[in-house]
Every structure is written in structure tokens, then in C-alpha cells.
Amino acid sequence: MIKKIFIIFVSILIILWFLTPVFLIVLASLTPSEDYYDQQRILPKRLTFDHLYKLFVVLDGWRATLNSLQVAAMAIGLSFLVGLPAGYVLTRYVFPGKNAIRLSILLTRSFPTLIIAVPLIMIYLRLGIGDTLFSVALAHTSFILPFVVLITTSILSGISVEYEEAGMIFGLSRIGAFMKITLPLALPGLAASAIFAFIMSWNEVFISSVLTFVNRTLPAQILNTAMTSPDYFKFAAGTVMAIPAMVFIFFTRKYLMSMWGISLK
């Protein structure tokens, strides 16, 4: 009984710890400016969607959101196009240098983005894809791809190769067996990692702001505009950034857990 109360107490503490800032951000983003600057007031008299509206419509937030979605979609598509076969090979085949490849996949994460940003811009300009969404997607792919390779490796190694071999015995080609047997079994995990990859791209701000001027993604746009705006505006931007990610995670938390090998309940 005491233990139960203790667990509930700690849980509430943890929830408050994480949700209070989110709550304050959302609240501030909905607070009318006169209430916001009123020192006497903690809770606003009324709520307004003014800031969000301005952010989206007046400051081109909707275009940036679309850009963000496009970049994320391209980055995820590219990452899975390359990462899924790579993960498959790393799980199903034994070949010389396999462990070296695994390690070097992690190594790519050890270069600070700051260092590669300038060379990247130079290369993109030379290729004629400077200031395009595709160039941002490519840059995002560079950090999403290793993640996708590692995650698909662990997802696929959890699926017995015999399911696939049974498929081949009973009439499928190797690729067919992968598509029809292994992929459906891997799908929940892959979907979760796709969502995770989406959030990685969605939240990325540095590369996006450096690489683009016109076609900014949402975080880059916000960084650019909100920094020079009133505080409640910054909070509105924070809300816009945080809510979609939180909603995604809420609906896919079961898969996310299973992706990392933790099972819920």
C-alpha cells in the first residue's frame, strides 16, 4: 500500500517535471499580449489563437511547415531506400569487414555538424542544389541513415531467417520472401523508426538554417523570425514545434518501445 502510494507520488512528480514546461509554453502561446505583460497575472483572462495565426499565416509558417514535411518525407524515403537493404545485408549475411562497417556507421555521428556545414554548402552550390529542400533532405539523410541502418538491423535480426527461407521453399524468390514475409513482420518496428526519423528531421534546426535562405524549414524559419519577435511569439513557435512531435509519439509509443526492445505492460 505504502509502496503503491510512493509509486503514484513519484509518477506524478515525473509527469509534472516533464509536462509543466510544455504546459507553460502552450499557455503562453495562447495568452493575449496584454495579459502576458501584466505582472500581476499568472493565468490569462482569456485564450487567443492570435499568435499562432500570425505565425502560420502572416509569417509564412504554413509554407515552412510544408517545407519541413517535404524535407522529412524525402529524408525518410532516402534513408529507408538505402538503410533497409543495408540493414538486411548486415543481419542476414556474413562477410569480411562487417563489424568494421557497423562501427563506422556510428562514427559518422561523431563529426560535429558545425564542421561539415560550410563544406556542404560549397558542394551543394557547385552541384547547383544550393538553397533547395532536397539539399536539406540530403543533409538530414546523413544523420537519419545511420540510425535507420542500426534500427533495421536490430529489427530484422529479431525475425527468424527461417520464416523467409520457408517463403523461398514454398514458392517465393529471395526478394519476394523479403517483401511478403519479412517486411510485414518488420512493419510495426519500421513504422516506429520512420516516425522517429521524422521527428529527427522535424526538429533539426542548425543544418536547415545554414543551408537555406528562401526555402526554410519550420525550425529554421522560427529561429529566424521568432528571435526578433516578442516572447509570446517564441512560445507560439515552441508550441507549433512540440505538439506534432508529441502527438506522434503518443500514438506510436507502443511501437517506439518495441523498437528499442522495451515492452510496455
Binding site: 527461417e162 520464416y163 527461407e165 523461398m168 521453399i169 514454398f170 514458392g171 524468390s173 529471395r174 513482420l185
Partner: peptide, 18 residues
């Protein structure tokens, strides 16, 4: 390839598709 051989197999782990 296996699919062109008209063989069947019962695997040790059964490999019944889950």
C-alpha cells in the same frame, strides 16, 4: 532456386508464419 525444385520443408523451429 528452391521455388523451382518442388520441394517442401519442415523446419526445426517450424517457421510457421506468425
Amino acid at each position: 532456386p528452391p521455388k523451382s525444385r518442388n520441394v517442401s520443408m519442415v523446419f526445426q523451429s517450424y517457421a510457421v508464419w506468425p
